[in-house]
Design a binder for these strands. Structure first.
Lengths: 205, 205
DNA sequence: CCTTGCTTAGACCACCAGTATAAACCGGTG
DNA sequence: CACCGGTTTATACTGGTGGTCTAAGCAAGG
């Protein structure tokens, strides 16, 4: 876990370190990112880095967590999902997904980081960072799923873990495809609508 | 690319090297697998390994390719898909998927290797091996997709690349979920049927 | 028997994440 | 002012990695 003293550092230096780490992780992925390059870019020594962070995993988790937190601050909270029937449920999800994608497109480094998340998350040398971030995101998804089942928008004949896995798999594939296409702003809503419809068809009752 | 001379080696030694590499890659994933451990397990020197293979990527690609080829030999070729309408198309796919999964369950090391494939495939130090295997599998999928569209089983209003991405994302998520569940043999067909149905609902016309 | 070229072993390289250590700094206190 | 103790820093170091290189072994052909 990141040392508390890091937050007491001057903001300038915090940002320098986080930015250098974000650049390096986004450019090379977790494994191929070099701590040595990061500390050089940040203008600090290796001892300093290890004085503030437990290690590479810890730094990655911190950068990803703060970046994600910033993203959700920019996008705002997920609106209430249980205000209507299935159609409203999916419409709200679609709108929120569109907002998320737009915010993500504005932070390509963060997007690269999250894309690489999948890549690194199944390698053995990554367990703590993985658990760290998934603890934060899974309950959110579980709750959305339960709400969807509550309003009759999501089937209940399959294990929730399977539905979550499939939806996340589809979402990842769509994200990567969308980033690769780089659609212009007025084409995006139509595409997102198609994608949400695919998910809806797969998991609706 | 693997050197041709490797195939001229006595079969025993070829198998020793491939088996050692398969064990190591399956146990640790691409990045955390150690060439040094492999050559120790195979009883050869580092010079020998680099005499037969270009490097770690090359070795991984070779092991994955031969393992996959063996799997498809055991399972047999994909039956004709264009013999009927949409229902037959999906039924044939479902049966073939079931066979593939059963064969894969019988080779846990190969399964681990392929699961790790997704993990490693988006890291920069993996591009050639990635391209190598995907060149082999993509046309196969494209053709199945085109056949599905031909018999009216697959929608034609979205870019093929998106359909492929989504289907592969769903398939990966399902594979991983299934491997984690380790369902017994008589539960598997029902689950596979549910999974294929989800894919069908997502991409059907 | 000797040469030639394929094969092999292992020393070596640059780099990696992570550690150990000792010096520098700095606020507080006698 | 002098000293002290904790905080922060720079840097040398460790054991490991994938990858390279060279010189010796060895077997076949003249």
């Amino acid at each position: 876990m990141v040392r508390p003293r890091f937050t007491k550092l001057p903001l300038k230096q915090q940002q320098a370190i986080v930015q250098a780490a974000l650049d390096e992780f986004a450019a090379h992925g977790f494994h191929d990112a070099s701590l040595n390059r990061m500390i050089e870019a940040a203008g600090i020594s290796k001892g300093t880095m290890y004085y503030y962070f437990d290690g590479k995993e810890d730094l990655y988790a911190y950068v990803a967590r703060t970046g994600l937190a910033g993203l959700f601050v920019r996008v705002g909270p997920l609106p209430e999902l249980d205000v209507g029937g299935a159609d409203e449920f999916w419409a709200v999800l679609e709108g929120y997904y569109l907002n998320l994608l737009r915010a993500l497109a504005a932070s390509p480094q963060l997007a690269a980081l999250l894309r690489g998340w999948t890549a690194a998350s199944r390698t053995p040398s990554f367990e703590t960072a993985k658990a760290d971030l998934e603890q934060a995101s899974l309950p959110w998804i579980e709750q959305a799923l339960a709400t969807g089942q509550g309003v009759g928008a999501v089937r209940e004949d399959l294990p929730p873990s399977l539905l979550i896995a499939v939806v996340m798999g589809m979402g990842q594939a769509m994200d990567i495809w969308l980033m690769a296409q780089q659609p212009d702003d007025d084409a995006l809503p139509g595409l997102v609508s198609s994608l949400i419809t695919m998910i809806r068809r797969a998991v609706s009752a």
